[in-house]
Amino acid sequence: MGSGATGPVGRVWQLRAGVRAYGLIVMMWIRSTMTYRASFAMTTFGNFAATAFDFVTILLMFAHTEALGGYSLPEIALLYGLAGTAFGLTDLLLGSVDRLGRRVRDGTLDTLLVRPVPVLAQVAADRFALRRLGRVFQGLLVLGYALVVLDVDWSPLKVLMLPLAVVSGAAIFAAVFVTGAAFQFVAQDAAEVQNGFTYGGSTLLQYPPTIFAKELVRGVTFVVPLAFVNWLPALYVLGREAPAGLPGWLAFLPPVVAVGCVGLAGLAWRVGLRSYRSTGS
């Protein structure tokens, strides 16, 4: 509703219009960034380096121990690489949706609502920052290292599992981002809560589930389903048992979970936007 686009035809139209508008706005941001080329180069490297420190932390731990929660360094690198790449992609594509609360507060959201393109596309493309590619590269690098070093008994299914996990993982993170943004329609200062789930969640996933309490693992499986981003598919690839006594077939569910999450996030967004339009802020 809102834009009068109801029914499947309206939805498809909205999706196409949204993607097109997203592209247009992203190009504007890239051109804005390119007016400061040196700054762009430095911040991209900075982004790469800052996220790389996460992995350096893990390397330092392995200087003192053979295994972490029963996992070897290459195994953890696989977990890290999958989560890092998936999160990096989401952060690149819609990392600025958490600025929504600020837009509600200062009233600039209204300027987006009088344009003929979906608001979510405009908010997602807001402050698009190519420098966030640094995080994606770093994730891919660690993933590459893991795949070279790991001694895995590869099967077609296991090979397929990796790209599927990255794409599904990115979609799950996207859903968390958008749901968090939708919540900011009601609570404008909730950006930090959202960051807890997104940035916090991605850091959590860099470590094996065995080092966390069972309740937490179940929580990120069934409540905020972050476990589907990398834990469950990666453990299947490594030939390990699913964490916290969960059934093994859950490893095949990430795409399904991702679709479900994205659907729910879309719903939350619509509810949030409708509530904004009826309450003002």
């Binding site: 509703m1 809102g2 834009s3 009068g4 686009a5 200062d106 009233g107 600039t108 209204d110 300027t111 609502l113 009088v114 344009r115 003929p116 393109v117 339009r277």
Partner: peptide
């Protein structure tokens, strides 16, 4: 306006003085 915001947006121009 509330029901057909997008269709309306092609017919109106808005200038917010301070934004």
């Amino acid at each position: 306006p509330a029901r057909e915001r997008t269709r309306l947006s092609y017919r109106i121009g808005v200038v917010f003085g301070q934004r």
